[in-house]
């Protein structure tokens, strides 16, 4: 029962997103014709425009357009990109790999950096090291991703003549070493953004847990301080940290759009951005739906991890 309810709420969410994206795209001024022909559109006769609209399938009523898109989306056909003629799914397949790799690396780096600095800070609240940790947290929170990205690009390329992203993008299967070099900085930018809130959550959760009775019990049992900190304090602090990580993942997908553009990675973010500029309705809609499914899946995983971390949750 619980599972069915959960599934129903997930499907409702996805339905809402699909309608929202569909409507927003059509509210933006301009359409596929104006964006592909530019000012030339003005010289078209109404008949030519009608023909083109029929060709692109945007002559039908909106509800009909929505239903036909949904029907094909659900059957696994994500439509075609008008500019390249390639099926959206083929584009998405490779782009999704890039974004997933980026998001995964970003999350791992963010969690590692965030928890380490949070633990570093919480060891002695109010001390210089705490100040240092908190300073990092604020700094990371305050610097926008695009500033950090462009700074890194500029400094690395100009001062060190090192800019792996200047070369053609390599998948990990083609050239693992190149791929990792190309992923390093974008992942770091995303990781730092994720690390800040995780660091703050970790710090406050640890400080709260450290005063709990069961921590005193652990010391009373003669358990070594390092083990008490990891096994008892950190383990109990994980609950808010997992929540925060789940929330941050949403931010990460959004942040990926900007970071992919700056670091020239052919990911979902760039694909959507380009498709919006070209008013490729099918590409944008389908890509965003894939994003949404990804996000909802991450949420389900977070819930599952949650249960593993806290046995009290049924």
């Amino acid at each position: 029962m619980g599972f069915l309810k959960r599934l129903a709420s997930v499907l409702t969410t996805l339905f809402g997103i699909s309608v929202f994206v569909f409507v927003v795209l059509r509210v933006i001024p301009g359409d596929t014709i104006t964006s592909s022909l530019g000012i030339e559109t003005g010289v078209l006769t109404p008949e030519q425009i009608d023909t083109l609209r029929a060709y692109y399938g945007i002559d039908k009523p909106l509800v009909g357009q929505y239903l036909s898109w949904m029907a094909s989306f659900l059957s696994g056909d994500l439509g075609f990109s008008y500019s390249t003629g390639a099926p959206v799914w083929d584009l998405t397949k490779s782009a999704l790999l890039v974004t997933m790799q980026l998001a995964l690396f970003g999350t791992i780096l963010g969690v590692l950096i965030g928890i380490s600095i949070g633990m570093f800070s919480a060891r002695k609240p109010g001390s210089a090291r705490d100040f240092l940790g908190q300073f990092f947290g604020l700094l990371a929170l305050a610097i926008p991703g695009f500033v950090l990205s462009t700074t890194i690009v500029t400094v690395m390329a100009n001062k060190f003549q090192y800019f792996p992203n200047g070369y053609e993008y390599m998948t990990p299967f083609e050239d693992l070493s190149m791929n990792l070099q190309q992923m390093l900085f974008p992942s770091l930018v995303l990781g730092i953004a994720v690390a800040a809130p995780i660091m703050r959550t970790t710090r406050s959760a640890l400080l709260e847990t450290v005063d709990k009775d069961f921590v005193r019990t652990a010391y009373g049992k003669g358990v070594k301080p390092r083990i008490v900190r990891l096994r008892h304090v950190l383990r109990n602090s994980l609950i808010p940290i997992v929540t925060m990580t789940g929330i941050q993942f949403g931010y990460l997908l959004g942040g990926a759009v900007i970071v992919e553009k700056i670091f020239a990675l052919p990911g979902m973010g760039r694909q959507i951005l380009d498709a919006i500029n070209k008013r490729e309705y099918a590409t944008v809609q389908s890509s965003i739906m894939v994003f949404a499914i990804l996000f909802v899946t991450i949420n389900l995983i977070t819930d599952w991890v949650y249960r593993k971390v806290d046995p009290r949750i049924k």
Binding site: F214, R216, T217, G220, R312
Partner: peptide, 14 residues
Amino acid sequence: AYIFQEPMTALNPV
């Protein structure tokens, strides 16, 4: 060895 007051909080819940 210690026995504490409130076993709900003195035992680690996880």
